[in-house]
Amino acid sequence: MKCLETDKLISYAYHLADESAASEVRAHLEACPHCREIVEQHARLDGLLDEWKTASPRPGFDVRVRQAVEAQQASGQAWGFWGWGWTRGLALASLAGLMIAGLLWYAHSYLRVSHSSAIATRQSHAASSAQNPSPEVKIQSSNSTNDGGVRPAQAISASALGVASLNEDKDAQALEDYDLAANFDLLSELPKRASRVVN
């Protein structure tokens, strides 16, 4: 007689087989001492394994579990307040900081553009004044003569040009340009005046 597969015997020994398979094994065991021995050994093994006892939880186990759960509850609340709240606060603070930085940058850029525009306007105004001197311009000179003698450029009053408030370098440059233009005009008239004097 051919022995059954070990799996079938073990399945029978540990009640893992369905009823039809169990019936087949039971019938075989009646005629096969070898397989019967294997099944009996597994039955003894089942009993032997029962000898491995374990201890119950030591006193205080339940208390420790409760404490762990309570700590979890507490940390959950703390997380809700300090965790998410802190994170959310940080995000809001970052957003506010970015907005403030953006506003500052925008304000700075705007002021710089406005200032440059104002300077450009003043330069333009100064240049046009140099080409077409205003009738109100008063030219003063300690050596001034009624006949319109030579008038040094230094004598030209800046306040008369309406640029008294200019205190920037560019403003000063505009003033210098004006003085140069004015002096050039005067120098160009010198030969005429000289000939007139000679005559």
Partner: peptide
């Protein structure tokens, strides 16, 4: 389970 119980046996 088969392999484990057989090994233990």
């Amino acid at each position: 389970l088969f392999r484990a119980y057989e090994t233990l046996r």
